[in-house]
Design a binder for these strands. Sequence first.
DNA 1: CTGATTTGACCGGT
DNA 2: ACCGGTCAAATCAG
Length: 357
Amino acid sequence: MDGGWSYEQKTLISELIQGMDFAKQLRVHLTSAPSTETRDMLMQGILSSYEKALLILKWSGPMPQSQPVAAVSGIPESPLSVNGSPQSDDFEKGIGDQLQNRDISKKRKMMPKWTDQVRISPENGLEGPHDDGYSWRKYGQKDILGARYPRSYYRCTYRNTQNCWATKQVQRSDEDPTVFEITYRGTHTCGNPGPSVPAPVSPEKQEQKQINHQNNQQQQQQSQEMLSKFRAELSVDTNNLDSNEMAYRPFSFPSASVRLLQIEHCNSSTLANVNSSLFGSFSSPFLSPSTPESNYFSMHQANDIGQAHNVQHLESDPTEIISTNTSSTNSPIMDLDFSLDQVGIDPNFPFDTSFFP
DNA sequence: CTGATTTGACCGGT
DNA sequence: ACCGGTCAAATCAG
């Protein structure tokens, strides 16, 4: 925390340098040799370098003072944010060993949480069979006070088998039924990113179906209308894409929805985690070019990541997308206690904290 | 038959 | 006490 460079810091620097080096090589490669293998290899190198670096940052005493606010530079509208509380205590307790029921709820509470608002304009549609690669299992539905539509709860299918605690909630906006609000909580620790997985059924799709059946007739009509429109093609809103991002995108996508991604609550650790998620999502197309369901992020150039009004562009199924946290199975990166700002990582640079063996 | 969804009960936090 | 989130038995679907 003080004075000269510790071993960790040196390693950190070296990792970052290495990562940058890999990135440079990759750039060269992208412009010259289209060898997929080399590209992937370089990408792996980049990812692992950054991951190591991040880990080091985490374990070598993140916060200078007890005011994480400074690190995050403030998340104004975040209600739950910025409490300098020493959360890592319980958190790490939970991580290493078996999950005790009491800890779980605590742990969940401090899981990273972000909300993704998906709007579908009437002209647009959604084509459903989209999937972020994760498979979700619905475990509940609730009528929410003051909300016209019920909220659905999903958890990762591999919760039991792989101890993956990622969950999401889907809530249709009452004012604008074309808007779905998807709240993701926790990162996937299952190794089931599933670009290769055929994408089971999109839960929200079903929800729409279900809503059609359940709610009153007006809503039914509305929903059906929507469904059919969803099936039509989505238009791509490129308003928020900056040219950089465009250049990064290796492929075009046939349909897309515009999604507003806002990080809802976070303390510093959460924020960092979310950021890694964002990057992970963004980079996924690079890792698996064969996947048509990749996610695209357009980070809205925020000097202050804390503001985090990011826009993600993806294809299809507006209610399904995103999430994509990328955690590799034993990535303690979950609990990073720093802001990427600090280390000066270019938010535009796509990288993925996950790598699949 | 197996796995996913539904839905009322339950539980914990406020 | 209320409300949101989760559980789990019943039900459904492939």
